[in-house]
Simulated assay, not measured.
Amino acid sequence: MSASDLSSGRFRAAREHDWDRLEALIDRVERGRAPLLSDEDLFELPVLYRATLSSLSVARETSLDANLVAYLESLATRAYFILYGVQPPLWHRISGFFAHAWPKAIRAIGRETLVAVLLMLVGALAAYLMVIRDPAWFYAIVPEDLAGGRGPQASPDELRAVLYHSEGPLALFAAMLFTHNAQISLMCFALGFAFGVPTVLLLLYNGCILGAFLAIHVSKGLGLQAVAWLSIHGTTELFAIALAGAAGLHIGMAVAFPGRASRGDAAVSAGRTAAIAMLGVVVMLGVAGMLEGVGRQVVQNDAARAAIGGVALLGWLLYFYLMPVREDLDG
Rank of each mutant, 00 (worst) to 15 (best):
A190F: 01
N206K: 08
A127I: 07
I184R: 02
A126L: 04
L214P: 00
F178H: 07
G211F: 00
P198G: 07
A154Y: 06
P89K: 02
A182V: 15
A108D: 14
S219C: 10
H180K: 02
R93S: 10
T199Y: 15
G85R: 05
G96P: 07
R133H: 10
Y164F: 15
I109S: 03
G148W: 04
Q153V: 15
A124C: 06
D145T: 13
V122Y: 08
V122I: 15
F189L: 03
F195S: 04
F195W: 09
A108E: 05
S95C: 11
H92Y: 12
P88Y: 12
Q153G: 14
L201E: 01
F189I: 15
V115F: 13
G221D: 09
L202T: 05
A190K: 00
A116I: 02
G192H: 08
R160M: 12
Y139E: 14
A215P: 02
A116C: 03
L125C: 15
A140L: 12
L146V: 10
F173Q: 05
H100Q: 10
H180T: 05
A127Q: 00
K220G: 02
L177K: 01
V117M: 08
A140W: 15
A171C: 11
L129H: 15
F173M: 09
M176R: 12
I141N: 02
V162E: 06
R160H: 13
A99M: 14
R160A: 12
A212T: 11
L177R: 05
S185G: 14
V115D: 05
L90I: 15
F97S: 02
